[in-house]
């Protein structure tokens, strides 16, 4: 039997963490989709060699501390306002790669005006929209994207669509805006989905270089803590319940 130390050698290396991802321990719950999406963005930034030209805008929500994990310059926005910040950065540094990273409460509730108008102006940015149908950071409250009948801490008997409306399927709205160039809905629950999502991220960042306008990537995501399911069950629940409402695939690719 060979010792493990004999195996850990440069020539045996098949995979390593991108240097754009910092060594900080992530605060995300085990099973949460954020970590995977962060890693994919970091890998794309490294592969494209744009670390010095990328500026991220983090939101208010679970990913408020995203700036601790990707080794790029960051701006931390007020709740929902990331697209307004990104607008200014894009206008003042048109050669930079600017992206916002927002959750469903941030983008589809308090920040609807900012995201609609930034996309309508066709700001040359990438928008990441992490949709897990719940407010994770504040402890599992109802989101605009919460499914009908889905229990949360502020809809303990399930979302009543008669009083709170149907889930806001905002990505379909965004796709109608002429300023958007590429609108896609992805997930990261299987290795195949992860690879597909990474391709979408790469394409979106390349669109910035080609000045194509707004690229919008929704990632249908899990919140096993908020959903009160283990990570495996969360993935199953997402496929069964979220995908029929938030159907994965490209909505627009011009």
């Amino acid at each position: 039997m060979s010792d493990i130390k004999d195996i850990i050698k440069e020539e045996n290396l098949v995979y390593k963490k991108t240097k754009v991802l910092t060594d900080n321990v992530m605060h995300y719950c085990p099973g949460c989709s954020h970590g995977v999406v962060h890693k994919l963005i970091a890998e794309v930034i490294e592969e494209m060699g744009i670390q010095e030209k990328t500026i991220g805008i983090s939101p208010v929500g679970c990913s408020v501390l995203a700036y601790n994990y990707l080794d790029i310059d960051w701006q931390e926005a007020a709740h929902g306002r990331a697209p307004a910040l990104a607008t200014a950065v894009n206008r003042l540094y048109p050669e930079k790669y600017v992206f916002t990273y927002q959750g469903d409460g941030d983008l589809a509730s308090i920040g609807t005006a900012e995201i609609i108008h930034a996309c309508n102006r066709g700001e040359n940015i990438v928008v990441f929209f992490i949709n897990n149908a719940i407010y994770g950071m504040t402890g599992g409250q109802m989101a605009p994207t919460t499914l009908p009948g889905m229990p949360t801490s502020t809809s303990p008997y399930g979302r009543d669509v008669k009083t709170t409306g149907q889930p806001l399927v905002i990505t379909e709205l965004i796709a109608q805006l002429p300023g958007t160039n590429y609108v896609t809905r992805q997930a990261v629950h299987t290795p195949a989905a992860v690879r597909k999502c990474k391709k979408a991220i790469r394409k979106a960042f390349e669109n910035i270089g080609q000045k194509k306008g707004t690229s919008f990537i929704e990632v249908v995501a899990t919140c096993n803590s908020g959903w009160k399911l283990n990570p495996v069950k969360s993935n199953e629940w997402m496929v069964e319940n979220m995908f029929p409402v938030y159907k994965p695939g490209d909505l627009k690719d011009e």
């Binding site: 007020a78 307004a84 005006a113």
Partner: peptide
């Protein structure tokens, strides 16, 4: 110089935040 009519005062001041964080006079 960039001049932009924002969708609201809220958006305008947050654009200011974005530009100010770039180290520019906004």
């Amino acid at each position: 110089m960039v001049v932009l009519q924002a969708e609201s005062e809220v958006a305008a001041i947050n654009m200011v935040y974005g530009g100010a964080a770039c180290g520019k006079k906004v």
